[in-house]
Design a protein around this nucleic acid. Structure first.
Lengths: 209, 209
DNA sequence: TAGATTGTTAATCGATTAACAATC
DNA sequence: TAGATTGTTAATCGATTAACAATC
């Protein structure tokens, strides 16, 4: 069955929602809908793509659902992540505690700035970019976050892929080329801001400023 | 005419693509397609939502297109942005140079940590969160970026809205409630990483680690 | 004129919503 | 049993792709 790609981030939302429901043992598509801003039909549809987790008449057992959603999302295990680029944004990601609570752990960090190399941040000794291939291969890391300047991004991503990285979260403002079979997600903050200004421009509201 | 919301970030991509084409005076939907990874039909469709910018047989004049796309995206002017939360992520955004090149300028920054208040970063004196309403109102700012911890996010967003903010980029890992007419975009890095682990989990590739 | 390329319409594809029989 | 709620099918909606007449 074809699963809409848009259903995956919603599964993450449902998972977070049930984490906030520790006191009860059962929930419903309606409750999950209210908690996440999705429709109840959407919740049931999304869950049904992956199995029959509920009981008609009573709803979804929270412990069952929690465990199933973790399996679906692949977070029923720890994942080690490589970070490339320890500038302002990279440093922020290194200290971001939200990753750890979801089972992600930044295990190594690289930069090409010799002033940063060998400095320790959050218990991670920053490595020279030259050590990227060796380290990623030897640690068997599958996921990388790229937080380097625009001009360096494609080169870094090529090197990550040749080191065996299979999934990349790219924060540099380019659309890198990657071969088939590599999962790439781009987060471009300026593009997001432009979605906002498009809206403000269209808006009927009399804008100030 | 109804414009698909997914076409807006593509317009941003086309705009960036033509910025890299300074040497030539004309481009085509095929060239923009190659540069952005979209299809040529998609490029023409997206542009046609907003007007007739090209000439059959010859293509799109770059200067004309550049100016039209800026107008569409609302970046034919400067925008002042308020930043709430000057932790690691907020500091990174304050120093991010990519915003300025697209016409965005972080004009004020707030934090509730008295150790940070009155410190100057990137030429911005960090203000106490208590000054949020007064400052945003008096400066007539329409856009805010929220980079506070999960627990503080909804409260901050409520206050931003009551100060007149119309568009919010939220980086805290919650889905805030906002009234109709307020544009909200959520960027949740853990959810993005979970899209990657979903893919790795599904992947036929024998994964290492 | 011949070749190129747009803008637009129709066809396809994919995702969401609504409805409801089956189940507890 | 009556009320609640799932899982699934069908209907709707929206976005993308293909095709091509019109234009330069």
């Amino acid at each position: 069955m074809k699963i809409p790609s848009s259903s995956i981030p919603r599964i993450s939302l449902y998972y977070r929602a049930i984490l906030s429901l520790e006191a009860v043992s059962v929930t419903s598509s309606q409750q999950l809908a209210t908690l996440t801003g999705c429709s109840a039909a959407q919740v049931r549809k999304d869950l049904a793509y992956f199995g029959q987790f509920g009981r008609p008449g009573s709803g979804y057992n929270i412990e069952v659902l929690k465990s199933e959603l973790k399996k679906i999302l692949g977070i029923d295990r720890k994942w080690e992540v490589a970070l490339v680029g320890v500038g302002n944004l990279g440093s922020a990601l290194l200290t971001y505690r939200g990753f750890k609570t979801q089972g992600f752990s930044i295990k190594c960090a690289f930069d090409n700035d010799t002033k940063k190399v060998n400095k320790v941040k959050q218990g991670i000794r920053i490595k020279d970019i030259d050590e990227l291939e060796r380290t990623v291969k030897s640690k068997g890391i599958n996921i990388a976050i790229v937080a380097v300047p625009r001009g360096a991004a494609q080169g870094v991503i090529d090197r990550l892929i040749s080191s065996g990285i299979k999934a990349i979260l790219n924060l540099a403002p380019i659309r890198p080329r990657v071969p088939k079979g590599i999962e790439l997600l781009n987060i471009d903050l300026s593009i997001e801001l432009e979605r906002l200004t498009y809206f403000l421009r269209q808006s009927a509201n009399p804008l100030r400023g």
